[in-house]
């Protein structure tokens, strides 16, 4: 298989199959979680589950002082990575073209230099948390292969994307192929690893908020 044939495959069947695996896996995980069900609460409700659930989904995305009791490192690196990754993924011109080809929807892009900054910040944060994972004995002991697999699958699209944007090391065709493959691997891995939190975090937040709402307390 030549490099051109490989690129055609990853842009065609490869992308379709990985997207299908992602959709299948996420649908499976979400429904499986839904059917776990909840024990019936016999107590009289003191507030709305839904309102508090939705509010919690929204408000838990933002910083609040109670989050810093264990220091600032996790908070800063966490925000840096997540914002860097999400902005790079959703606001780069060429990524928007991909989403447009899938959904027909498009939105304004950020200038490439801004995307470069967000990607570099994302990579820097990932490197920092990896170093911290090795440096902190407790965190190191708690880590298993899946943590390192998820880290690798997350950092690869950012690194290959930067190499592609500035055409470093390999020809454009090869870099584009490697970048798309790295994205496809991430897509396939998300539903079946800890990375599934891209969706399940909203279920978990809603659940926490809903419990608090039912009891009439702040979540």
């Amino acid at each position: 298989m030549t490099s051109v044939e490989l690129l055609i495959w990853v842009r065609g069947p490869g992308l379709q199959l990985s997207l299908a695996a992602f959709i299948l896996g996420m649908t499976y995980r979400i429904l499986q979680t839904y059917f776990l069900g909840r024990a019936k609460n016999l107590a009289e409700p003191r507030g709305s589950e839904w309102v508090h659930g939705i509010k919690t989904i929204w408000w838990r995305s933002f910083f609040h002082p109670g989050m810093t009791v264990r220091g600032y490192f996790t908070i800063i690196s966490g925000y840096m990575f997540h914002l860097g990754f999400i902005v790079t993924l959703l606001f780069f011109d060429q990524h928007i073209e991909l989403f447009k080809s899938w959904t027909g929807l498009s939105w304004p892009a950020l200038p490439p230099i801004v995307i470069t900054v967000t990607a570099v910040l994302g990579i820097a944060a990932l490197v920092a948390v990896l170093v911290d994972r090795f440096a902190d004995p407790v965190r190191y002991l708690l880590s298993d292969y899946q943590d390192y697999l998820c880290w690798t699958l997350t950092v690869l699209p950012l690194v290959t994307g930067l190499l592609l944007a500035y055409k470093i090391w390999l020809p454009y065709t090869s870099l584009l192929t490697v970048h798309i493959i790295s994205f496809e691997l991430l897509l396939v891995a998300i539903p079946f690893t800890k990375l599934s939190h891209v969706f399940t975090i909203f279920i978990a937040r809603w659940y926490n908020g809903a419990i608090a709402g039912y009891r009439g307390v702040q979540s």
């Binding site: 379709q16 199959l17 997207l19 959709i23 299948l24």
Partner: peptide
């Protein structure tokens, strides 16, 4: 940067298969 070919049918099939598998597992 856009994919080659349509993903609609395959995505639809993936939703159905995922829903069936998720429901069965649940």
């Amino acid at each position: 940067s856009a994919g080659i070919g349509s993903v609609g049918t395959l995505a639809g099939m993936a939703v159905v298969a995922g829903a069936a598998a998720g429901t069965a597992a649940g």
